[in-house]
Lab assay of single mutants.
Amino acid sequence: AEKTGIVNVSSSLNVREGASTSSKVIGSLSGNTKVTIVGEEGAFYKIEYKGSHGYVAKEYIKDIKDE
Protein backbone atom coordinates (compact mmCIF):
# COMPACT_ATOMS: atom_id res chain seq x y z
CA ALA A 1 0.00 0.00 0.00
CA GLU A 2 2.19 2.77 -1.26
CA LYS A 3 1.43 6.41 -0.65
CA THR A 4 2.72 9.57 -2.22
CA GLY A 5 3.45 12.90 -0.63
CA ILE A 6 4.89 16.29 -1.52
CA VAL A 7 8.03 17.74 0.07
CA ASN A 8 6.90 20.84 1.97
CA VAL A 9 10.05 22.91 2.52
CA SER A 10 11.24 26.25 1.15
CA SER A 11 14.79 25.10 0.45
CA SER A 12 15.65 21.40 0.62
CA LEU A 13 14.93 18.37 2.77
CA ASN A 14 17.62 15.95 3.91
CA VAL A 15 17.19 12.31 2.95
CA ARG A 16 18.77 10.06 5.56
CA GLU A 17 20.09 6.52 5.66
CA GLY A 18 17.99 5.65 8.73
CA ALA A 19 14.99 6.89 10.69
CA SER A 20 16.94 9.22 12.96
CA THR A 21 18.22 12.79 12.82
CA SER A 22 21.66 11.39 13.65
CA SER A 23 21.61 9.10 10.61
CA LYS A 24 23.92 9.87 7.71
CA VAL A 25 22.49 12.26 5.11
CA ILE A 26 22.50 10.49 1.75
CA GLY A 27 20.94 13.25 -0.33
CA SER A 28 18.31 15.94 -0.43
CA LEU A 29 15.01 16.75 -2.12
CA SER A 30 13.82 20.19 -3.13
CA GLY A 31 10.46 21.62 -2.15
CA ASN A 32 7.39 20.37 -4.06
CA THR A 33 9.12 17.12 -5.07
CA LYS A 34 6.74 14.16 -5.17
CA VAL A 35 7.90 11.19 -3.10
CA THR A 36 6.69 7.60 -2.88
CA ILE A 37 6.26 6.48 0.72
CA VAL A 38 6.83 2.79 1.34
CA GLY A 39 6.68 2.75 5.12
CA GLU A 40 7.02 4.73 8.32
CA GLU A 41 9.22 4.51 11.35
CA GLY A 42 8.63 6.83 14.28
CA ALA A 43 8.80 10.43 13.07
CA PHE A 44 10.09 9.41 9.63
CA TYR A 45 8.71 8.15 6.36
CA LYS A 46 10.66 5.56 4.40
CA ILE A 47 10.66 6.64 0.77
CA GLU A 48 11.91 5.36 -2.57
CA TYR A 49 15.13 7.22 -3.33
CA LYS A 50 17.51 6.76 -6.27
CA GLY A 51 16.72 3.10 -6.81
CA SER A 52 16.92 2.36 -3.10
CA HIS A 53 15.36 3.84 0.03
CA GLY A 54 15.85 6.78 2.33
CA TYR A 55 14.14 8.39 5.29
CA VAL A 56 12.61 11.85 5.59
CA ALA A 57 11.05 13.61 8.57
CA LYS A 58 7.25 13.29 8.47
CA GLU A 59 6.67 16.91 9.44
CA TYR A 60 8.04 18.07 6.07
CA ILE A 61 5.80 15.91 3.89
CA LYS A 62 2.29 17.08 2.96
CA ASP A 63 -0.61 15.98 0.77
CA ILE A 64 -0.28 12.31 1.63
CA LYS A 65 -2.37 10.20 -0.76
CA ASP A 66 -2.94 6.50 -1.19
CA GLU A 67 -1.87 5.35 -4.63
Rank of each mutant, 00 (worst) to 15 (best):
E59D: 10
D66T: 15
K65H: 11
S20F: 08
I37H: 00
K46S: 03
G42I: 03
Y55Q: 00
K58T: 04
E2R: 07
S10M: 14
G39S: 08
E40M: 09
E67C: 06
G27H: 02
E17F: 09
K50Q: 14
S23C: 06
S11L: 13
E17H: 09
R16F: 13
L29P: 00
V15E: 00
S11M: 13
D66W: 07
L13M: 10
T4H: 10
V25C: 05
E59M: 15
K3G: 05
V7L: 05
K58E: 02
G39A: 08
A43K: 12
S30W: 14
K46W: 07
G27Y: 05
F44N: 03
K50N: 15
G54R: 02
G31H: 12
I37S: 00
H53F: 14
Y55P: 00
N8A: 14
V7K: 02
V9T: 15
Y49G: 01
N8E: 09
T4F: 07
S11E: 11
K50I: 06
R16I: 05
I37E: 00
G42A: 07
G39R: 04
F44H: 04
I61K: 01
E17W: 08
E40Q: 13
V56M: 02
K34Y: 09
E17R: 07
L29N: 00
S11R: 09
G54A: 12
E59K: 10
A43G: 15
H53G: 04
Y60A: 13
V7E: 02
K46A: 06
V25T: 07
K50W: 07
K24I: 07
A1V: 09
V56R: 00
A57Q: 11
K46V: 09
G5W: 03
N14W: 11
I6K: 07
N32R: 09
G51P: 10
K3F: 06
I6Q: 05
S20W: 08
K62P: 03
V9W: 04
V15M: 03
T4R: 08
G18P: 01
I47E: 00
K65M: 14
I61S: 01
E40L: 05
G31S: 14
Y45G: 00
V15C: 02
Y60I: 03
S10I: 13
D66N: 10
A1G: 14
V7T: 08
T4G: 05
G27F: 10
Y49K: 00
G51E: 09
K62R: 15
D66H: 09
T21Q: 14
G39D: 09
G42F: 06
R16M: 15
Y49L: 03
S52P: 01
A43V: 11
V38S: 05
G27V: 02
G18R: 12
S23R: 04
K34D: 03
G39W: 04
S12I: 14
T33I: 10
G42H: 07
G51F: 07
K50V: 08
K58Q: 06
S30N: 14
T36H: 12
G54Y: 04
L13Q: 03
D63I: 13
V38N: 04
S22R: 13
T33L: 06
Y55M: 01
H53Q: 07
A57I: 12
V38H: 05
S30P: 15
K34I: 13
V25L: 06
K58N: 02
D66A: 10
L13F: 03
V15Y: 02
R16K: 06
F44E: 01
K34L: 14
A57F: 12
G5N: 03
V38Q: 07
G5I: 04
I61R: 01
S20A: 08
E2P: 10
A19R: 03
S30G: 15
G18E: 15
G31F: 13
F44G: 01
Y55K: 00
A1R: 05
Y55N: 00
V15R: 00
V25W: 05
E59G: 07
E17L: 11
I26C: 04
G31E: 12
K62A: 15
K46R: 09
G51I: 05
E2A: 12
K62D: 11
K24R: 15
S10G: 10
S11V: 13
V38E: 03
K3L: 09
T4M: 08
I37G: 00
I26E: 01
V25G: 03
T21F: 13
E48H: 09
G31M: 14
N14R: 10
V35H: 01
E2T: 11
I6W: 08
E40I: 07
E17G: 08
S20D: 10
S28D: 07
K24E: 09
S11A: 09
T33F: 06
S10D: 13
S12V: 14
G39Y: 04
K34C: 06
V38P: 00
V9H: 11
K65W: 09
S30I: 12
G39N: 05
V35R: 00
F44W: 14
G18W: 14
A19L: 04
H53N: 05
N32C: 06
Y45E: 00
A57G: 08
A1N: 13
V9L: 08
K3Q: 08
H53L: 12
E2M: 15
K62C: 08
V9F: 05
S10L: 10
G39V: 03
Y45K: 01
I6H: 06
H53T: 11
G39C: 05
E59C: 07
N14S: 13
S10H: 15
I6T: 08
S10Q: 15
T36Q: 10
E41P: 01
G51S: 08
H53D: 05
T4W: 06
K46E: 08
T33Q: 09
G27T: 02
Y60N: 12
E59W: 08
I26T: 03
S10P: 08
E48C: 08
H53C: 05
V38L: 15
V7A: 05
S22G: 14
I64S: 06
